[in-house]
Design a binder for these strands. Structure first.
Lengths: 125, 125
DNA sequence: ATAATATCTGGAGTTAACTCTAAGTCAAGT
DNA sequence: ACTTGACTTAGAGTTAACTCCAGATATTAT
């Protein structure tokens, strides 16, 4: 699969795909004899994982470290496990912040809906 | 309350407090006769709201727009309501992405925990 | 009154994560 | 063989959200 097809498959720019590979966020992609990227199943799986992690807001740096560890063999299994647990913690914290803000937004929206009907706003901020 | 006290209260830098005010993410803060910031209750409420929105990942730009609308009076109530609903949508989407990634992390962590015990890793990525 | 400490502003610098550009190589169609 | 369009790399540019700095003014302590 060409870089164009991969970029269409995941709805991500070709530049970003090259960038992810360049910084080590995914392992080196399979190439043709002449050096053109030819994404295989496993390359695509890495891309998909990278996109998933980034879409949740996890830093590129964490993924780079994870990829680096996988390349170093089975001795890094404990380190990888720890890394994944740390990132899970970050996501749980972020999810809580979002939930707190959602509650707040819901409250404000509720008040604004009443205000929009009556035309009267009885609070600041 | 001085900027030092406000920064300690919210555990945020003085520079960030000045930045939030400068870009209009909060309305102008109350000042002493000589021009030094003297945060009042309502100033603090704005700061707290700004920090809450930012901590959830909402863009500074959205908060600037919201503050601008509040300064323009009650005629902007429908616009403010729409803005809040849009931001709520963004947060709901982001929450879903986080939840999807959390499930994935949990699965991987589970597999790694088994691998850490047996020392055997039976998959790629 | 003086020294030390805090705050002020405008503007420059930093960081993460892309995103774009230029100049060159490769592949497909005629 | 030649043209057209896709792909390559290295490196520069962009954007958001801070973060830092310098020089000026203000407040507090001795």
């Amino acid at each position: 699969m060409t870089i164009r097809e991969a970029s269409e498959k995941f709805d991500i720019s070709q530049d970003t795909l090259r960038y992810y590979e360049r910084v080590g966020m995914i392992p080196p992609v399979t190439r043709t004899a002449s050096g053109i990227r030819d994404y295989q199943e496993d390359d695509l799986a890495w891309v998909e994982l990278a996109i998933c992690m980034r879409s949740a807001g996890l830093p590129v740096e964490a993924m780079i470290e994870y990829v680096k560890l996988t390349q170093e063999g089975d001795s890094t299994i404990p380190a990888r496990l720890q890394l994944l647990k740390e990132q899970r913690e970050e996501l749980l914290k972020q999810k809580e912040k979002i939930e707190a803000t959602l509650e707040r937004l819901n409250y404000k929206i509720g008040r604004y809906e009443i205000a929009a009907e009556t035309g009267i706003l009885s609070w600041e901020e």
